[in-house]
Design a protein around this nucleic acid. Structure first.
Lengths: 236, 236
DNA sequence: CTGAATCTAGACCGACCGGTCTACTTTTGC
DNA sequence: GCAAAAGTAGACCGGTCGGTCTAGATTCAG
């Protein structure tokens, strides 16, 4: 299975490493078998919870269910995670880590022309959502976006953590835009605000796609991310 | 209390009718008192549920809590709503109705220049979220977006309904863009796709703002909605 | 070899979940 | 005026929730 992406420039790029990795990570609980038996329990809980939270929702997934699927007893669960909230924190960290070292790192590869990184990001999002839907029948959307809307009003700790994740993601866009301006690929603009707008757009597109349960929405609307533009405020 | 909006054009517009109405609707359970006593129960349940679902989440709000706040017994509740899902459907319809006849209708006023309608929409969203945060301390975000991400993977019926709401909202953007193209305000483009992209962006901006619990994000990033652009596909 | 620390097992807890049911009161149609 | 329909009251149901607790198994350091 090797997914290829066609960039606007016509340049073909191989995305299978990152995307396939991201997908496998989602399904890895069925794959991973040989581990140090210790700490294995913890990671089994973690990846199971991640799958379930991503595929459904935080409130809808009970600890019992996680334990059953992870083949772990409650005693073990509460040995590693003091509460469901702590589990959620760990899940977010886990996903953010895999994400940052996975296709995000690849999409924002500094060897790629800045604007192509945006296309790469959209393509990666599309293939990921598509793969997930083909497997499960439903588009899970973005774990961070899902959690953010679900818990932000009720859990300050989780909200702050999710916010930090978005902050970090936004900074990748920011770097990219700064570089693009530096290279003269785009005229000067408020790169920080525009970066945030791009992240918002990405999340919004995934939200819409999930609501329509159709990954093609990502492919169709996504590329418009490059047209977003916020001018510098004090341009006197 | 009369909120005014400054449009890019410098033209001042009064938004208090729609926005204040939208805000009042959220708080109206404390206001409304004189009603036909019958069907009053139903609408009290409805508006209470709407407040709670919007301010927290679907799964997190129990029927018991809704009944208590609405001063209604369970028997009455299940007399009007066969299930929690039915209640959710009614809440969505209710909100969509108020919304369509409220500031959305006003924002997409055909007497306004098309592009100004977009600014109006952003301003209205900003003031609404801001008012809600000032009241409750937290930004509730968009009820539809919140529900969509929470239930889309678990409830086909609600997902389809939410999708229809988005479809309808998108069509308002679509009309607006068609008109703008007609008037030569913007060059020809794929108005349908761009309309969807704009809705996605709006939802994404609200998502980000909610995660940061800061309505100013809407004000800062929102106006970029006008820069979104998806070109016509077959331009041979 | 042994004692302490780590980890696992699973019964158990009170609270609450969505939903049902019966009995009663009020309104409505004729 | 009266029966039927509409609406209300609230006890009750099995199931599940997040979380606790005790007892035993396993690992590890000295």
């Amino acid at each position: 299975m090797c997914l290829n992406i066609f960039l606007k420039s016509g340049q073909k790029r191989d995305v299978h490493v990152a995307t396939a990795q991201a997908i496998d990570l989602t399904v890895r609980s069925t794959i991973v078998e040989a581990m140090k038996q210790s700490t294995d329990t913890r990671s089994r809980i973690l990846s199971t919870a991640r799958e379930l939270f991503h595929g459904r929702s935080y409130a809808d997934v009970g600890i019992k269910e996680i334990c059953d699927l992870a083949k772990v007893q409650k005693g073990s669960f509460y040995h590693f995670f003091p509460s469901k909230q702590d589990l959620a924190m760990a899940v977010i960290d886990d996903m953010a880590g895999d994400w940052a070292h996975g296709f995000v790192a690849e999409a924002f590869d500094r060897n790629l022309p800045p604007l192509e990184r945006l296309d790469y990001m959209i393509d990666a999002a599309y293939y990921w959502q598509k793969a997930a839907k083909d497997l499960e029948g439903r588009m899970p959307g973005c774990l961070f976006g899902n959690l953010a809307l679900e818990v932000s009003t009720r859990d300050e700790v989780l909200r702050a953590k999710l916010n930090a994740v978005f902050q970090k993601a936004s900074s990748r866009f920011h770097e990219t835009l700064d570089e693009a301006v530096e290279q003269g690929a785009i005229p000067p603009l408020d790169t920080e605000a525009t970066a945030q707008a791009m992240l918002a757009f990405l999340e919004g597109v995934i939200l819409l796609a999930k609501t329509r349960n159709d990954p093609e929405v990502v492919r169709k609307l996504g590329p418009a991310i490059k047209t977003l533009r916020i001018e510098l405020a004090m341009e006197n």
